[in-house]
Nucleic acid binder design. Structure first.
Lengths: 210, 210, 210, 210
DNA sequence: GATGAATGAGCCTTCATTCAT
DNA sequence: GATGAATGAAGGCTCATTCAT
């Protein structure tokens, strides 16, 4: 057991070592320009070793995507623990998403990459782990909405569907950052984003009470 | 005279011929796997000829993106001419977006590709033409919203900002199609999409008590 | 006659037009990076037209070499007309060579290019014209030396052989400019060059008289 | 231990194998017409393998240049060990240069290529290695001259500057071989070269009356 | 005389992946 | 477990030259 455990721990350490190198390079040179050979050199390992731990280059990037989703999850989770109303939580979640896309631009890009690419999904385990990470985040949004509906803050919507819409809207809007100087004609992207978040939540409020 | 004109027409025909080949391949193999050499072979032209008409690979894809944006524009424009209320127009626009992403999946992918890629835009003229196409579409959405606000169908929102939000939300949600079998846990993507569109428009309606 | 003459004149004008463009580009981008297409565009002519006046790209550069040799010739010729002794003329010729390699660096490079390249000489006429230009220059040097020998300024050397040596030495030394910061270890190239010219001439003086 | 050493030796062998192929081709087709693909084919290696050992095409040619400079160095070094006076050493060096340019024409061409090309040098290490080779040779010439000045064979000249002049003259004259049948008008190039060497050394001798 | 569209072989270089050691 | 040399297909792109109009 002890041996086996140690082995396992060492294996994890190596994987981390590789991921560290990959992350570094990816953040410096972009996803397209990062090659396995570079990762190997940076990680001070042989290329063969990389392939022992990861089946392919894509698998490494998947692992990185996991990291990104974890960071995003923890940030939204923290919001969930705050003592504010469901509307506040959604609002902060929205702003957190924009923040995430800025402060962790590279993680956002990687998530985006997999979302925009005609995926060739690899191993099942990997796939499921990513799905799980995604679901966890959706669950948080779902929870915020559900609570709001339950306590009357929001009108009666389908929490899960609304959560998806919310996330989708956030994601699409975030991407539009790129259009700031062109199609958006100088409108400040952050303002638009914030405005949108507010509209989205406002539209969730019951109509009568107001 | 006639000669010059004919020349010009032939030149345009060649450009189309190249675009046809590029579109074909792109739609079959994806943006990353389509190479200039393949395009040339498909178009039954020399590689040099391709470069005579297009400065780079990227320029070809931009041209294709233009095509996609044109199609999208025409579809939404048609909606604008219908004799329905602004809310109906927005709703149909939403559904048209989903429809576009399905029927013209590859055009959607190209648009998405440029939105998701940390692209370095090339020539200014090219850039501006694309921008113009995008702006035209946004203008349509802007117009729908503006009309609705004017005639009281909608509450008082900033039409342009709302248009951006609307488009962003549609775009993000469309991308989520990919999550249908995983994170969305079997929920029908189209249902979610439709639901979202309705929510978005519903949130735009005036609060009753007001 | 008149017609024929005009034709000829126009033809020469076209050739100049092409040469002007080629020179411009060559001086800006170097010999390797200047393409016929670029020359054509710059000259506002079709590529085919270029080929009507010049058989090949190389031929254009030959013509440019001619220009360079002409400039060099005129400079040395002017020295020949000065009222100074043969030693002074040789000295000034040496310095003029260095000056030429600096002020007309690109012409010097082109001469150098043909000297360093395993030539595939083209048409005979062209070849002979270049040869003539070269011989003219050598003749000047020859004359300076011959005069010096005749009037006792120099000791009795073979003027023609000495002229070749002189020119060869100048040329080789000029090329060494490139080594200024490396092999020459910071020694000022111009100083070395001047020193060499002086040595070369000094070695030509009669030994007895001194 | 043994393994590591053997690996290293094999690696060196591969580099030699590549250089052999490159040399062969270069000597047959000239520097401009030798491509990496051809080298790979000739060396019976994959293109990638070439790039595993050499960073670029230029690096290979630098390596070849090193070889040439080494040969030249050894030949002059051997002259230095002879029991002849400094004037004899310089004379033999001169003739050795001509000999080198004939027997190792291609090496001479490479050296010339780098001297005549407005090269942008690459890595510093590479650059320094070449510089070192060049300096070594200059040092030999410098030494010959210095000795001659010290023992009274030569008059008092700056040994280093004279060495540069000597080399420069030799180099320039060697290039003029090409003009043998044209500008030189049938004069035997070798004769001229020999004559020049003699003049150069003669001019170094002390003036009698002094 | 002038044009310029068309060519296509060839260029240098990259890189994910394999496999013998 | 780890290594790293070797691969070779494929990438985007250039360019001197030709020839039908």
């Amino acid at each position: 057991m002890g041996l086996k455990e140690r082995r396992e721990r060492e294996k994890q350490a190596r994987k981390h070592q590789i991921l560290d190198a990959a992350r570094h390079l990816l953040f410096k040179k972009g996803i397209q320009s990062t090659s396995i050979n570079q990762i190997a050199r940076k990680a001070e390992l042989g290329v063969g070793t990389i392939y022992f731990y990861y089946q392919s280059k894509e698998e490494i990037f998947y692992a990185l995507q996991e990291e990104g989703l974890d960071i995003l999850f923890r940030q939204i989770e923290a919001i969930g623990r705050k003592s504010i109303g469901p509307d506040g939580k959604l609002r902060e979640t929205g702003m957190a998403y924009l923040d995430f896309s800025r402060r962790h631009k590279d993680y956002f890009d990687i998530i985006n990459y997999f979302l925009a690419t005609p995926t060739v999904m690899l191993g099942d385990e990997l796939k499921q782990r990513i799905d799980h990470k995604g679901s966890r985040i959706l669950k948080l949004l779902d929870g915020f909405t559900r609570t709001g509906v339950a306590d009357g803050t929001f009108r009666s919507v389908d929490p899960k569907k609304y959560a998806v819409m919310f996330w989708g809207a956030l994601h699409g809007l975030t991407q539009f950052k790129k259009l700031e100087n062109t199609v958006l004609e100088g409108e400040n992207h952050a303002h638009i984003f914030e405005y949108a978040v507010d509209q989205l939540i406002d539209g969730l409020k019951p109509k009568k009470e107001r």
